[in-house]
Design a protein around this nucleic acid. Sequence first.
DNA 1: TGCCGCGATGTTATGCTATAACGTATTGGA
DNA 2: TCCAATACGTTATAGCATAACATCGCGGCA
Lengths: 138, 138
Amino acid sequence: MAHSHDVPGDLTRNQGLVLGALNHSTGPLSAYDILDKLRADGLRAPLQVYRALDKLVERGLAHRLESLNAFVACADEHCHRKGLIAFAICEGCGKVDEFADAVIEERLGDWAGAKGFKVERTTMEIRGKCAVCLKAAA
Amino acid sequence: MAHSHDVPGDLTRNQGLVLGALNHSTGPLSAYDILDKLRADGLRAPLQVYRALDKLVERGLAHRLESLNAFVACADEHCHRKGLIAFAICEGCGKVDEFADAVIEERLGDWAGAKGFKVERTTMEIRGKCAVCLKAAA
DNA sequence: TGCCGCGATGTTATGCTATAACGTATTGGA
DNA sequence: TCCAATACGTTATAGCATAACATCGCGGCA
């Protein structure tokens, strides 16, 4: 069966390399982190990474974390997730937890409706400490 | 009576200048935007601005917009707002609307509680088009 | 086949955002 | 008065992102 790092077959070489780097990382990577990991594969310039990231993010295969200026692979196996996604970022270990919440999405929709605001994109990022790190610090 | 741009009296000179620049702007400003506005007042280096911004954000007098790498003055007159704050950013005119939502805050709290995650800071930013810009485009 | 358009790629250069590291000045208590 | 803490000023550097231009490869189509 498919393992957790399978990727769509229609990615270009650079897109595949970048997504692979994200999939094999335990935490978010900056574009330059990714570039460094892929120099052995022939990538040389930041733009090659940014262009691949643009496409991956556009397709929902990767996410940008605005508060870190970094990127993660989408945690959803089949990348079907459509709506608002929230991220919980642990300041201790760097791990990122991705989740969706229909109620929050609805509240934002209500606010937007009342204001006549057309939502195009939402970023929601929680910074803090995960259970494992809290326990370790105790 | 006090007008909308009153500031606490215990700010340092640089902090006051930076907050003034934010208050007089109709939209978010980057640190370098602020620096350019304040060269006439003697500011010369980015660090002077960043240091002032750090203090202002810490005190809740200004907010950082992660998705823009920019800053706005807090919209709350008396800066008493404590909890989670959301921002709606218009891609058309650049204006930012600040609001709070107790339900969203509660949902995030629930999620965090269930996961054992300790929340330290949350950023929520909606990108889209405001009612005015939508109407203008029609 | 040969032409064309489009999207991906490669490369160089540049611009914007943020902080490190150092020293000085000011302030406010003990 | 002395000390500690905080703010300030300056230079240099690190980190993030895109502009501009040339090339390549592939699919459609006359």
